[in-house]
């Protein structure tokens, strides 16, 4: 990286960070209840006990905004790593079965073992994500022709469809179980408890740090395995590290918000348009832009049909699937 580029990147980074702060402030300023900006500011800077407007800002909106930021960053970085390692522009935790696996495991954990709000939720999610990823990869590489992008995506869809069928079978005979799970299954940031988030926080941080540490090698890997090996990269080790980071990030995101589709697909592509193919830039920018994106999507989810809120996951899919379609048309 030469000096000009470094300056450019640094400027861009700070600009994006500023954008995220603005998105955060916007998130806590709007909602079903109209609260004057002055009151919002007061709630942030000088909160008073017993003022419900301050409670709304500090206890209802701010945690949710923080969840949105974390989940957005985690999923986008996971998507970026997957796209780099598999050299597949359509790779993403949702498309390649990790999210379905994590969601399934969380449902089992909460529904059967009553683990809601405990340290085990992210752990369950991680095991589920790992099993999902391994399953998808095994099926795809067992198919004739090997793990091509198409085969991976199809086997991801098959694994997702299978887990969804098992979930449906479990909820089909009981209307109230269905009521309790239908919002969760569509991916939502509403009503998530702080306890789960705090348990997931180390996972978020660990995953992001790991991603930043291997970003340099991912750049080499994205250019092809031979190139990477030629540059002295231990491809197997990096692949395992990347898989670990992706699983950890997906698990953290799913245990907080359920499955939010297509975030990991949209953001890295958007970022790549501006910063090129260096993963030392793609990873941090994906994190920051992804955080802002999910925060904005969550604002829309909360205000479009106010006073009713819609699931964040439904909105991310409605926005992300057209992006997927566009990518297929343009890139393939």
């Amino acid at each position: 990286m030469n000096a000009t580029r470094t300056i450019c990147a640094a400027t861009g980074f700070w600009l994006c960070l500023g954008g995220v702060v603005l998105a955060f402030l916007w998130h806590v300023s709007v909602g079903a209840k109209a609260i004057p900006l002055g009151t919002v500011w007061q709630a942030i800077t000088a909160p008073q006990d017993g003022v419900f407007d301050h409670v709304v800002v500090r206890d209802l909106r701010m945690p949710r905004a923080i969840f949105a930021l974390s989940v957005g960053a985690a999923l986008s970085v996971a998507g970026a790593l997957m796209q780099g390692v598999t050299r597949n522009p359509l790779a993403e935790p949702g498309i390649l079965g990790l999210m379905a696996g994590a969601t399934f495991a969380v449902i089992i954990g909460i529904g059967w073992f009553g683990l809601a709000g405990t340290a085990y939720v992210p752990l369950f999610a991680a095991i589920g994500a790992l099993i999902g990823a391994v399953l998808v990869w095994t099926i795809a590489s067992a198919a004739p022709g090997g793990a091509t992008p198409l085969t991976l995506i199809l086997s991801g869809a098959a694994v997702g469809g299978f887990l969804y069928a098992v979930e449906s079978a479990a909820i089909l005979l009981n209307e109230d179980t269905f009521r309790n799970f239908r919002v969760w299954l569509s991916g939502s940031l509403a009503g998530r408890d702080m306890a789960t988030y705090l348990w997931a926080l180390p996972w978020f941080i660990g995953g992001l740090i790991a991603a930043l540490l291997i970003a340099h090698q991912i750049t080499a890997l994205a250019m092809g395995e031979e190139t990477a090996a030629g540059l002295g990269v231990d491809t197997f080790k990096i692949k395992v590290a990347a898989l670990g980071a992706v699983v950890v990030l997906t698990a953290a995101a799913v245990s907080v918000a359920g499955p939010l589709g297509f975030v990991g697909l949209v953001i890295p592509h958007l970022v790549r348009l501006f910063v090129g193919s260096d993963y030392r830039l793609i990873v941090p920018f994906s994190a920051i832009v992804g955080a802002g994106y999910v925060t904005l999507v969550d604002i829309a989810a909360r205000v479009v049909l106010a006073p009713i809120e819609i699931s964040t996951g439904i909105v991310t899919t409605m926005l992300g699937a057209p992006m997927f379609i566009w990518l297929v048309r343009v890139k393939l």
């Binding site: 699931s311 899919t317 393939l332």
Partner: peptide
């Protein structure tokens, strides 16, 4: 190839509308 991938993308988009209806 594009037909299959397009199918998956359109399927996801359509499923999100379906799940909105099912959820609300």
């Amino acid at each position: 190839l594009r037909f299959i991938l397009m199918g998956i993308g359109v399927a996801a988009l359509i499923s999100s509308f379906t799940s909105a209806l099912l959820t609300y």
